[in-house]
Each structure stands twice: as structure tokens, then as C-alpha cells.
Amino acid sequence: MSERSLKFAIIGHECKRQLLQPHVERMVSYLEAHDSTAVIEPEDLSDTDYIISLGGDGTFLKAAGRVGKRQIPIIGVNMGRLGFLADVLPSEIEQTLEKVFNHDYYIENHTVIQLFSDGQPLQNNPFALNDIAVLKRDSASMISIRTYINGDFLVNYQADGLIVATPTGSTAYSLSNGGPIIVPQSGSLCITPVAPHSLNIRPIVINDTSEIVLEVESRSHNFLAAIDGRSEKMAEGTRLTIRKAPYVVKIVKQKNQRYFSTLHEKLMWGADTRQ
């Protein structure tokens, strides 16, 4: 049992409330039986000890965005399919909460990156746990992305877009575009082009203390900046800067979980998919 009453905030997928309701009721009943408080979709996260993300990795990203700098640990319950971030099965909810009460878990710190526009933070949540991407808006033309690392010119990408991914995001959009899988806490970021014009252009892994500057040109004179999938229209000539954020996202992990075992299972490495 915990030494004091704990407060849990439950954040779920808005479109799946009916599907999630039985699991929410289970959690609320369990927490109340353990003298703890459960608040569903609270506006205010003050005094919250833990966040429970109930959904897939998209819901987890939403929860991480809500937490921001507050450093509240997040428990991800996977109601989706793949679930790299949300890795607790619905059948493991009570078991996982019991381990939280008994302090039988560990916290995994995940790097966050931040987007600045012409040297100023964006107004609408400029922080990303997975990735920040610049993408073309029209279907015909590539965009030109002049890229600098710590002030040094890297390359002028001619591509449909460019992804800057954290280790957490290396198994998401970046991976689908041929980027490498990066182990959490490796201190790295990956720059992955989207459909580059030149076959010689490949993803590159850099230190996460690096400052990345992007200058984008487009025939349509604008482009998209996507921050964990949240897109903003940007004007051509806008100078973008990406840096590591001054905080991390804390994820609750069970002690028997291992990253490479999770990779093996989620990506079905070694599985015979022949019919």
C-alpha cells in the first residue's frame, strides 16, 4: 500500500469512450479500494501523482503534451495495436497499479525536442516526444530544406519533407521512411528525409545536444511543420530551429520489461509471415 493517498488522472481516446468505459470503471474501483483518487479527463493536473493514458500511442502523445514540464509519470495502457509507448495490456491494469503502490517499477526518461520559429517558441505547444517534421503542402513539388547542425551546413535536402526524431520517435514516422531504430537514453536524434530526390541522401544520427536549423523553400511559398502530428502552416522564408527541450517525459515501466524484447515482439522479428 502507498504511504499516502495518490491521485491518478485518466486520459483516454475521445472517440472510444464507450469501448474504454469498462476499463475506466475497473481502474476507478481498484484505486478507490486502495484509498486513492481517480479523476477522468481533468482540466487541471495540479497535485496529480500519475497519469494513466488509456488508448494507443497517439493517446499517449496527447497525455505527454498535457503533462508538459510537470514531470508527472505516465502509465500507458495499450488499447490499440502496436503500442511502443502504451505497453501495459488491459489485463495487466490491476497488476501494474499494485506495483505502483508498492514502488515496484522504474521510471524511464524520454527526450523531448522543441521547435522555434525565427528564434521564438511556437504558440501552440512546440514540444514533441516523437518527432518534428517539415513537409510539402502540395502534391506535385518537392521542397528544398537547407539544413545546418550547430551552425555548420549539412546538406540542402530536395525531398517531400524532413523528419527530426527522438529515440522514442525512431520507431514511428522516421522508421517508415527508412530511419534507424535508436535505443532510448542513447543521447541521439535522427534526421530522416521523406522521399529524397537523390538516392545518395540517407538518414543521419547526431548528438541530441545539437542545434538543428532549417531554411525551407517551396514553389507554393509555404509548407507544414508537424509537431508529433500537430500541423501548422508556415510561410516560406521562416527559419526553424530544433533543440532538445529542458525537460523529459517520465514513463512508468515494469521491471520485467526489456527494450529489445519489446522490439522483437512488436516488430515480429524472426516471425514467419508466409501463408
Rank of each mutant, 00 (worst) to 15 (best):
S2G: 11
S5P: 00
L6F: 03
I10N: 02
H13R: 13
E14P: 07
Q21A: 13
V28A: 13
E41K: 06
S46T: 15
L54C: 05
L54F: 08
L61F: 08
K62E: 00
K62M: 01
G65W: 00
R70M: 12
M79T: 09
A86N: 00
E94D: 15
L97W: 12
I113W: 00
F116W: 09
P121H: 03
N124C: 06
N125C: 03
P126H: 05
A133K: 04
L135W: 01
R137P: 07
A140R: 11
A140Q: 10
T147A: 04
I149E: 02
I149N: 01
G161R: 05
L162G: 04
S170H: 10
N177L: 15
P180L: 14
L189D: 05
I191N: 09
S198V: 06
S198W: 02
N200S: 13
P203M: 10
I204H: 11
I212K: 07
V213E: 15
S220Q: 07
H221S: 12
H221K: 15
F223L: 05
D228V: 08
G229T: 01
S231D: 09
R243F: 05
R243E: 12
K250M: 13
I251T: 14
I251R: 12
V252P: 01
R258Y: 11
R258N: 14
F260L: 14
A271W: 14
